[in-house]
Amino acid sequence: MVLIYIDQDEQEIKKASFEAISYGAALAKQLGTHAEGILLGTVKESVEALGKYGVSIVHQVTNSGLNNFDASVHATVVTEAAKKLGATVIVFAHNINGKAIAPAVAVKLNAGLVAGACALPKTDAGFVVTKTVFSGKAFASIKIETPIKVISVNQNSFGVIVGEGNATLENLDLPVPASKIKITSIDKIKGEVPLTEASLVVSGGRGLKGPENWGILLDLAKALGASTACSRPVSDADWRPHHEHVGQTGIQIAPNLYIAIGISGAIQHLAGVNRSKTIVVINKDPEAPFFKAADYGVIGDAFEVVPALTAAILKSKAGA
């Protein structure tokens, strides 16, 4: 059986989990078995509805202490669940929480781990999973040599597959160790899609000259319903908050659309965004290296091009 970890935050199931379930369900089919989910804590929405992504049963450990994330505690409970349910493959999203517990679960189950898988395994000769390495500049095919396998799936690499059906909800009774972490405060930027989950991203670089000029970028993001990102010098100079910094030393993202405005396309920047499905580059320098990594390019002054693009999007939306 393939067991998928269903990640939640403030009692809401994370979008990354839908992709992890879709991946786990496809893998189960490939292995001739079925997929089940494991959810820790309590959530506000319907758990049965997760059936449409491909799980037949969702096991829930309804201990409200589990609503606060503690890597050590969560890894212990998931491990016990995997043992009790007889899972042979455990799948996680490669998001912040998944990254924090999948390796610990692998240790506890004596399982080989592939962290950051970007495709289903090849199972004709062994169990070989492809993952991105060198910050997206290459792929590695990694063979897992152990009977039990742990995989975390890179976000936006497999996609969410929506089918039909409901999952059965089953209560799982497992001991929950006491957490040694006391959470004192949580600070969230309300109403914003976290960058790693965003399917559309508008990003700005030093070419925008200063924080006072970000209005045109924010207007474009609003017109598209996109999240915003920036290059490293922009966040280093505090023009934009640190959590917007993408790249090799920031966050790595793989949205459907990445629009880069006034960003030169340094190798360290590309490493964080080159898995994006479609890249649009707006830059006044035709020699900017970013154009080599782009699908669509506009050579022009951002201060003219960006407002024109926003207007064109609004016009197209109004017409549709």
Partner: peptide, 30 residues
């Protein structure tokens, strides 16, 4: 070892950028 690297691959290069005239953003949207 619990895992072993079988092979590395370099992702295929982008097929080439399609340039859009800066005065024609309707075309980029299309």
């Amino acid at each position: 070892e619990t895992t072993s690297i079988q092979q590395f691959d370099i992702p295929p290069a982008k097929s080439g950028v399609k340039l859009v005239d800066p005065s024609n953003m309707d075309e980029l949207v299309r």
